[in-house]
């Protein structure tokens, strides 16, 4: 996804303003001018400044491209777009289902799905996915004592 510098500049300015506003509500230390809000406000000012320069500069040099939104890497590249969506879906699956379904199952499904999509034959996909899943699980859970959630598999592990 490519955005015109003008759009990005406006977004950065808006972010800076929002941060500044939030930080105004922070308490002060012993009635002094400083407190938890001081540093975020300095950063917010920096963001507003950077965003404004970005905005102004692009208007001067390339006004036509300033507000363009271009999905250059996705458009006309359905394969690529699908792969990207799969990465997102896999991450969301880990985040939302990780504790209940467990890492090995999600990982295995993710790997098989990717290998098939990327053109591997089913037996290869299953074999490699199983190998990688098992290796990661043995390594992290058994050797390194990381309590990777196993989901329903916990009963058999």
């Amino acid at each position: 996804m490519k955005f015109g510098d003008g759009l990005i500049g406006l977004f950065i300015v808006a972010l800076g303003v929002a941060v500044f506003g939030q930080a105004q509500g922070f308490p002060k230390v012993a009635d002094q001018f400083y407190g938890p809000g001081l540093f975020p406000q300095i950063i917010a000012a920096g963001l507003v400044l950077c965003g404004a320069i970005l905005f102004a500069r692009t208007l001067r040099t390339a006004p036509a491209a300033s507000f363009r939104v271009d999905a250059v890497s996705w458009r006309g590249n359905r394969r690529g777009a699908m792969s990207g969506a799969m990465v997102l879906a896999a991450l969301l699956a880990f985040v939302f289902l990780g504790d209940t379904v467990g890492f090995p199952i999600i990982g295995f499904v993710t790997l098989v799905a990717f290998y098939l999509w990327l053109g591997r034959r089913l037996p290869v996909a299953l074999l490699v996915a199983a190998g990688v899943t098992l290796a990661l699980d043995l390594l992290f859970r058994l050797v390194l004592h990381v309590p990777v959630p196993s989901g329903p598999l916990a009963a058999f592990w």
């Binding site: 880990f94 990717f114 290998y115 990688v132």
Partner: peptide, 13 residues
Amino acid sequence: DLILPALLVLSVT
């Protein structure tokens, strides 16, 4: 194509 998906799962872990 074999490494990239495995890398994704490794990153998450």
